[in-house]
């Protein structure tokens, strides 16, 4: 393939990736309800969105779930990554290694269905969790969020110079102290990335949530899904635009911070 042809494919690829996103933004400012017919510039759908209590409530539920699930995922992911990257061979290592990667390749419908069946069975056996709702969704999201968190954190942990931890030990720090003084600061970027990833995944999931949600705990994706199954909705376009803006701001901020760091650190050698 010649250079020019390669360039065309790459440009086409990026257009393919971004055109739909761009179209969401453009149509969110469309006066017309018929989404694809341009009826002039308007911000009225943003107003409608802010008055839609169903969407607002669902968004609030989703944010709560995503926050809790992301925190749980990061903690569980850190523990699992520590065990896998630092504890050498131990009983259950293969098991843990398998369990943290399996959710990554399991279709969502299967995870959702099997978790629901577990919750139902547990409820009849031990009475917990009583019914389905926020708790069951948080558990489900934390479970697959952990799998993603481990990937991110373990990669960083393997790259961290192990002799740093040994040096701290050598200088008199006990294991827990070593973790907080040396390991955790080294892991910080990965922990932030893992948290954000788990948060995003939770905020985005419709399939698993549909299985394990109960009455009154419809998440934002579930509400959007039921709306868009009936066709395009300008309100959803407005919502999408807000999501895109938020993600872009976070990503740019992350890029700006990581680009700035070496610049301030570099001094004369």
């Amino acid at each position: 393939m010649s250079r020019a042809a390669l360039r065309i494919v790459v440009v086409a690829g990026f257009v393919f990736l971004y055109a739909p996103i761009l179209s969401l933004v453009i149509y969110s400012f469309n006066e017309s309800r018929l989404v694809t017919v341009w009826g002039g510039f308007s911000t009225k759908w943003y107003g409608e969105l802010l008055r839609d209590t169903q969407i607002l409530e669902a968004a609030w539920i989703s944010l709560k779930i995503a926050f809790l699930a992301a925190c749980l995922s990061t903690i569980l992911g850190t523990l699992a990554a520590t065990a896998l990257a630092r504890h050498g061979r131990f009983r259950g290592r293969t098991m843990l290694g398998g369990l943290v990667t399996a959710p990554l390749v399991m279709p969502e419908v299967i995870i959702g269905l099997s978790l629901l069946l577990l919750f139902v069975a547990m409820e009849s056996l031990v009475g917990w969790p009583a019914g389905r709702g926020l708790t069951t969704i948080v558990i489900a999201h934390a479970t697959f969020g952990t799998a993603f968190a481990v990937v991110v954190i373990q990669a960083r942990m393997v790259a961290l110079d192990r002799s740093l931890e040994e040096a701290a030990q050598d200088l008199g720090a006990r294991p827990l102290r070593v973790f907080f003084d040396v390991t955790l600061p080294g892991l910080a970027p990965a922990l932030v990335a893992a948290w954000l990833l788990a948060f995003t995944l939770s905020l985005d999931d419709v399939v698993i949530a549909s299985f394990v949600a109960g009455p009154g705990s419809s998440t934002l994706p579930m509400v959007i899904f039921s709306k868009v199954r009936l066709g395009v909705s300008p309100e959803v376009n407005a919502l999408a635009t807000l999501v895109i803006v938020a993600v872009t701001v976070v990503v740019l901020a992350a890029a700006w911070i990581s680009a700035r760091r070496p610049a301030t650190d570099a001094g004369p050698h």
Partner: peptide, 20 residues
């Protein structure tokens, strides 16, 4: 005796200076 309780210190090949 675990490393943190030894009156022995080590200079690491990679130096292992805490970067932060």
């Amino acid at each position: 005796v675990p490393p943190h309780a030894r009156d022995v210190n080590m200079m690491f090949q990679s130096y292992a200076l805490f970067p932060h």
